[in-house]
Amino acid sequence: MDKAGALKKPRINAIEYMRGISMLGVIGIHVGSQYIVNAAANIHLVAVFEIFTRFSVPIFFFISAFGLFYNLDINKSLNYKNFMKKRARTVIVPYVAWSLLYVVFYVWRYHAFSLLNPLQLLSMLFFGTACYQLYFMVILIWFYLLMPLWKYMVKHSSCINLTVLLVLQIAFDYYSSFVMNPYGIANPVLRDLLVYRLNYWVMHYIFIFVLGGYLAVHYDDFKIFMKHYRLSIAAFFFVSLLGLLAYYYYCLFIENYTVLEAINTAHQLSPAGVFYTIGASIFLFSEFYNCKLPRLLEKAFSLLGRHSYFAYLCHPVFIALLAAVMVKLNMVMTAYNSIAFYLGTVVLSVIAAAVCRYFSQKYWPILNELTIGVYAKR
């Protein structure tokens, strides 16, 4: 029972498992960015690294919303002060800590002393540019700041409202991704606000966030839906995946795009990418809900989910270090080397997460507090 005396809702393992898979996908995207530097990169392996994994970032917002609303009484008023106080401890503090850690790392590794400029630091914190994966946390912070709005939207959502929101989401994402061009703006402040819009505009992910909250509030109905329509959910996922892959290959073979241009077009904010995100979110939830996993696989997914937050935040360090080792050894990022590079990054990131958590729990609790927002029970 919680402090109010109400029964605590049962833990949903699917959410933890999906966190782990999302972390694996994000690392895949960033390793793929290393691989496509090779002019002879295999376009199909690029598709695995950069297209198949495109659900990874938006599904984090789905999971975050589900977790928030699953433990929220939608009919009670929100204590905004307490809500933000808790989110500051679990997200804002780790975000600032990791941003400063990356600044120190880049100053040490690349002698980038210009990053120590106070205005530069403030800009990096606002846009989430201290490292390329941190923008996710900036958007998540904005989602938290606007929680009363999402609570209202989720409470008054229906299938019709969600359909309208989906159409608006696709239209907005298309305009932002393929029509808007801020580079010609003379004012540097306004130009940066628009150039870095993907780093902090929550509007790009409103639908998937509200959908996660809606399904959490109606979880009993969602469980029935997943049980009765498991095959249909799987079919929708595979059709949406094929649609995004088809778009990628269309860009390559019909539009004659480079590989980099193709993956920067067939991304999660393209119309095909939006449907793929929805398909992957519901499919993974459905499979983890319906399928009884072998004990070993269950432990593996649980391990990945438990350490996904830290691994997500620290993996660029190991990408940089492994890339430096490859340069030192004159190794080319071939297909086989890129797969080994990916596995090495995942293993090292998860080991680092496990070691830091163990060390923090045993000796220095502030380490967990600063890096993953986990506080020792008092």
Rank of each mutant, 00 (worst) to 15 (best):
A320G: 02
H307M: 07
E298G: 15
N330C: 12
N330S: 14
Y336V: 14
A353F: 03
V317R: 00
R295L: 15
V325C: 12
M331D: 03
A340M: 14
A353Y: 01
L329G: 10
F310A: 11
G305K: 04
V327T: 14
S349D: 04
V327I: 15
L304M: 03
E298W: 08
A352Y: 07
V355P: 02
L322T: 10
A324V: 09
V346H: 01
A324H: 07
H307R: 05
H315T: 09
V355H: 03
L313C: 11
F310L: 12
L304T: 00
A335E: 12
L329H: 13
F318P: 01
A352H: 04
V325Q: 00
F318W: 09
P316Q: 00
V332E: 15
V355N: 01
S338D: 10
A300M: 13
L322A: 10
S338N: 04
S302G: 06
S349H: 02
M326Y: 15
A352E: 04
I319V: 11
V317P: 02
V325A: 11
L321H: 05
F341H: 08
V317K: 01
H315A: 05
I351Q: 02
N330A: 15
C291P: 08
A335K: 02
H307K: 09
C314A: 13
N337V: 05
K292I: 08
S338K: 05
A340P: 06
L293P: 07
A320L: 09
H307G: 12
T345R: 04
K328Q: 14
Y312P: 00
C314K: 00
F310Y: 10
V325M: 11
M326D: 10
L321G: 05
C356N: 11
N337K: 00
S349Q: 01
A320W: 07
L348G: 03
L329Y: 14
I351E: 05
R295F: 15
L313H: 03
C314T: 03
A324K: 11
M333A: 11
A320N: 13
A352Q: 02
S308N: 08
A323Q: 12
L348C: 03
I351M: 13
A352K: 03
Y312F: 15
A323E: 10
L348N: 06
V317S: 05
L303S: 09
A335Q: 06
L293N: 08
C291I: 15
V317E: 03
C291E: 13
K328D: 11
Y342D: 02
V332M: 14
T334A: 06
L322Y: 11
L348S: 01
C291S: 11
V317M: 02
V350S: 05
V327E: 14
L348D: 02
L296T: 13
F318V: 07
S338G: 06
P294A: 06
Y309R: 09
L304Y: 02
M326R: 09
A335R: 09
V332G: 04
A324I: 04
A335Y: 02
K299A: 13
L297V: 11
M333S: 04
E298M: 09
A340V: 12
V327M: 10
Y309V: 06
F341D: 00
A352M: 05
A323R: 08
I339W: 05
A311R: 04
E298F: 11
A311L: 06
I319Q: 05
S308A: 11
G305F: 02
L296E: 14
L343I: 12
A320V: 10
V346D: 01
K328W: 13
M333V: 15
V347T: 13
C291H: 13
A335T: 12
G344D: 02
T345D: 08
